[in-house]
C-alpha cells in the first residue's frame, strides 16, 4: 500500500516536471545565446575597458557619462530618432495603403497577384543589393540625375548621399522603400482575416467607405499594426548593414546612427566598454518600448 502511494507520488512529480524537460533545450539555448551575451555586454559597460585589457577596473557609470557627453553620440541618437520615427510612420502608411490596394475587390485575381509580387520586391533584396541599386540610381551620372538635368529641374547633378544636409533624408527614404513590404504583407494577412459580415452589416447600416475603414478595418488591424510597428522600431533602431554600405555614417557624421557609433567605437577605436555602454542605451530604449507593447497586449487580452 505504502509502495503504491510512493509510486503514485513519483509519477505525479514526473508528470509535473515533464513539461519543463521539454522546455529545457529552449531555455538552455536562450540562456546561452541570449541572456549570457546581454549580461556580458551590460557588465562590460561598467569597466574601464575589456577584451584588450587583462585587468579591467570597475568604473561604475563613467562610461555612460562619457558616451552621453560625446557630441557625436548625441548626434547619432538624434539621427536614429529621426530615422526610426520616419521609417515606422511611412512603412505603416505605405504598407497599409498598398495592402488595401492589392486587397481591393475590384481588382481581378491576376492583376492582384502581379501587383503583390511587384510591391513585395524590395523585401526580397538584401542590404547589399539595395545599396548597389540605389547607389547606381543616385550616382552623379545615374538615372535620377540624368532625368533631373535633362528636364532642367537641376543644372548640375545632385550629390544625394554626399550632401551632408540631404544624406540622412535620402538614407531614410531608401530604408522606407526597402521595408514597407513587411507591413504590406502583414496588413494584407490581417485584412483577409476580417469577416465580410462586418462590412455587410455596416453597409446595411448605411456606412460609407471611410466609415467602414475607420470603424471596422482599423480596429481589426490594430493588434497587427502595433506588433509590426514594435518590431519595426527595434529592427530600424539596429539597422546597420544598409547604413554602412551606403554612407558608413558619413559624410562627417551626417548619417551617424547609434549602430554605426557602436561599431566604430568597438572595432575602430577598440573601446569595447564605451561601445557596450552605448549598446546598453539602445537596449534600454528597446525594452521601454517592449514594456509599452506588453502592457498594451495584456490590456487587450483582459
Amino acid at each position: 500500500m505504502e509502495k503504491s502511494t510512493h509510486q503514485n507520488r513519483t509519477a505525479r512529480i514526473k508528470g509535473k516536471l515533464e513539461p519543463y524537460f521539454y522546455l529545457l533545450p529552449t531555455v538552455a539555448l536562450m540562456a546561452l545565446l541570449l541572456f549570457v551575451p546581454i549580461f556580458l555586454v551590460i557588465s562590460y559597460s561598467f569597466y574601464d575597458n575589456v577584451i584588450i585589457n587583462d585587468n579591467p577596473v570597475w568604473v561604475g557609470f563613467e562610461n555612460y557619462a562619457t558616451v552621453l557627453g560625446d557630441a557625436i553620440f548625441v548626434k547619432s541618437m538624434k539621427n536614429t530618432a529621426i530615422f526610426v520615427v520616419l521609417n515606422v510612420i511611412f512603412h505603416l502608411l505605405i504598407g497599409m495603403g498598398f495592402a488595401l490596394m492589392v486587397n481591393a475587390k475590384s481588382l481581378g485575381p491576376r492583376p492582384k497577384a502581379f501587383f503583390r509580387i511587384i510591391y513585395m520586391l524590395p523585401w526580397m533584396f538584401n542590404a547589399t543589393v539595395i545599396a548597389i541599386l540605389w547607389k547606381l540610381l543616385l550616382n552623379g551620372s545615374g538615372v535620377i540625375n540624368y532625368l533631373l538635368t535633362t528636364f532642367h529641374i537641376t543644372e548640375i547633378p545632385l550629390e544625394w548621399l554626399s550632401d551632408r544636409s540631404a544624406a540622412l533624408w535620402v538614407l531614410t527614404f531608401i530604408n522606407i522603400w526597402a521595408g514597407y513590404p513587411f507591413y504590406m504583407i502583414s496588413t494584407l494577412a490581417g485584412l483577409q482575416g476580417i469577416p465580410d459580415s462586418l462590412y455587410e452589416s455596416a453597409s446595411i447600416d448605411g456606412a460609407n467607405g471611410l466609415q467602414k475603414f475607420w470603424h471596422i478595418t482599423l480596429p481589426q488591424l490594430r493588434p497587427i499594426l502595433i506588433s509590426i510597428a514594435m518590431l519595426d522600431f527595434i529592427w530600424t533602431t539596429q539597422n546597420f548593414s544598409l547604413i554602412w554600405l551606403l554612407t558608413a555614417g558619413g559624410p562627417a557624421h551626417a548619417t551617424e546612427m547609434m549602430s554605426t557609433y557602436v561599431y566604430k567605437t568597438a572595432f575602430q577605436s577598440y573601446q569595447y566598454s564605451l561601445a557596450s555602454a552605448a549598446a546598453v542605451i539602445i537596449l534600454i530604449a528597446c525594452v521601454i518600448l517592449a514594456i509599452f507593447y506588453v502592457r498594451s497586449q495584456t490590456r487587450n487580452d483582459e
Partner: peptide
C-alpha cells in the same frame, strides 16, 4: 514577451555582429 523582444534585439539587423 520581454524575452522575445530581447531576442529580437539580439538577433535583429546588426550587420557588424
Amino acid at each position: 514577451s520581454l524575452a522575445m523582444v530581447l531576442s529580437l534585439a539580439a538577433c535583429g539587423g546588426s550587420g557588424g555582429s
